[in-house]
Simulated scan of single mutants.
Amino acid sequence: MRITVTVDDPTDDFRDRLLALLEEHAAHVDTDATWTVERAVRYYRSLPARARRIVRMAAANGGFVGDDELRTDGGSLRGHSGALKRVLERGVREGWWPAGMRPPIEARGPGFGKVKGYSLPVDLVEVFGTAIERHDDQG
């Protein structure tokens, strides 16, 4: 048996009770941790403008945007990764998606805070490209 439940804008009490019920039966529950266009729209919409630009450019470039493309104003990329992570965590807290969602975009570099670019997995390029188009059409 397969049951799909979608609850738009649940109250905090309802969400907590539903999540507790699901946790109680976790051995029999499969969590859908797939990035859908709807989830991607919500993620993208919730990002600050600078982080949104990274996602937009990575999707437009087939999954990667380099640091040179992002530093057109000569500015630093410091702090961009934090915003990407915070929105992912916020989505779990708000019930927009389940815990365990893979980060849709991640910093790439040699380490020690040096960012050489950001990558979006190839299988998410179309999902996020469509989400960005929908966001812009609504906007």
Rank of each mutant, 00 (worst) to 15 (best):
L124M: 07
F112T: 14
S81H: 11
E126H: 00
A99T: 02
P98T: 04
A59E: 09
V122T: 09
G117K: 10
G63T: 01
G62F: 12
A59G: 06
R102V: 02
P48Y: 00
N61F: 12
A27I: 02
D30S: 12
H25P: 05
E38K: 01
V29N: 05
R39D: 10
A59Y: 10
G79N: 02
E24F: 11
H28N: 12
G75S: 15
F112M: 04
A33Q: 15
W96E: 07
F64E: 12
A40E: 11
L22I: 10
F128A: 04
H80D: 03
G113E: 04
V122Y: 09
L21G: 02
R39L: 13
V87Y: 01
V92A: 03
A83W: 13
R93P: 00
F128W: 09
V37T: 11
G74A: 09
F128G: 00
L84N: 01
T31G: 08
A59R: 05
P121Y: 10
R53Q: 04
V41G: 04
F128N: 02
A33P: 05
G100I: 02
E23D: 12
L21A: 15
F64L: 14
R90D: 12
V115C: 07
T72M: 07
G79M: 08
A40W: 11
G79D: 08
